[in-house]
Design a protein around this nucleic acid. Sequence first.
DNA 1: TGTACATCAGTGAACGCGCGTTCACTGATGTAC
DNA 2: TGTACATCAGTGAACGCGCGTTCACTGATGTAC
Lengths: 196, 196
Amino acid sequence: MRVSREKAAENREAIVRAAGKLFRQNGFDGAGVAEITRAAGLTHGGFYGHFASKDDLAAEACAQSFAGSLRRLETRTEPPGRQVEGYVEDYLTAYHRDRSDRGCPMPVFAGDVPRQAMEIQQAFSIGVESFIGTLARDLAARRGAAKPAKRDRQRAMLVLAGLVGGMALARASAKAAPALSEEWLESLKGEIKALV
Amino acid sequence: MRVSREKAAENREAIVRAAGKLFRQNGFDGAGVAEITRAAGLTHGGFYGHFASKDDLAAEACAQSFAGSLRRLETRTEPPGRQVEGYVEDYLTAYHRDRSDRGCPMPVFAGDVPRQAMEIQQAFSIGVESFIGTLARDLAARRGAAKPAKRDRQRAMLVLAGLVGGMALARASAKAAPALSEEWLESLKGEIKALV
DNA sequence: TGTACATCAGTGAACGCGCGTTCACTGATGTAC
DNA sequence: TGTACATCAGTGAACGCGCGTTCACTGATGTAC
């Protein structure tokens, strides 16, 4: 049964949104086309009217997840030069650890991206580059510099690697070693904030 | 056709070894029982005489990969207090990035571990804990301290998170953004060595 | 504005495929005498 | 030490299942007059 063009566009958007949640929750290989379209309130049959393939959807969902995650860094309330600190504080929380479906795509996807389709790898790299740039700009502002220098970018990359690695490791130990998982969040919060 | 008990033990070991390589190369879900046993020079039929399940093998292969990786940290030639620095230098190399099948299990596995069987999560957490302890001991030695204090452990966790996150991100960008991938290795080498 | 019909978004059954796992069988090993 | 036979490590076909993808069909939408 045909639906209006407007409704069809909404359905497409609902699929991308559901995919963003489910891929972040279960990984690219852990969420199927049928599960995703069902979560969007549809059946899987019409899927290929909207997307060329599952990889095509995954690349778009990856890009959208990055955009949403980056927005949370760019719309912070702290003054410039204090935003990275606040972001680190919000990033290394039990809530973020336990709700990967709403969180940063990097800790969930990074390990699998090398084995995914090229369009997914491209969307991921573009997202990472945006994060580095935004972090570096705030680190430059903290120094009173107008534009980020190489040292800002390098420090931004250390901060990002620490956040992504730390969150991935905190999640990996959450069930089998909960005390270690908490320690990841607490220790890194202190160590990384001391870097900025 | 039956083989000797000695040969059977060798076959079992060959399966674990092949699994360690293939899981690190293709991920837990990306390497199958048939592929692994074939790489060990066997067929898949006899697999369940050696292991209760694929997850059972994965847990053992994970533990063995950690042991081998940890050995590379514990048998370094630098004097105590200088070993972390050397390890960082070896870790953040193009060779390590391009040969994940021979490298550290953490960047490959961390993202998928939360969705794996509990025995795999346990093997992973035990391995991570060993790494933190060994890194912290060397950081303590650098200070001239006999035993690692809390600050050594926290710093060790930052170093480990940076290495693991950095390597995962360097691999994720290797094909789609090779310049960014190189930058991950170079920038983090400098930044992390400055931490110890 | 109203009518007739072409369009096409979405449905649900079906496809081929690869996966983890099972099982009847084979034949060399290990053991009892 | 030699022989007869029970044991069991490994083989390869087969299983059920879930996956991504395809397709004939449905019926409301959008359009031509």
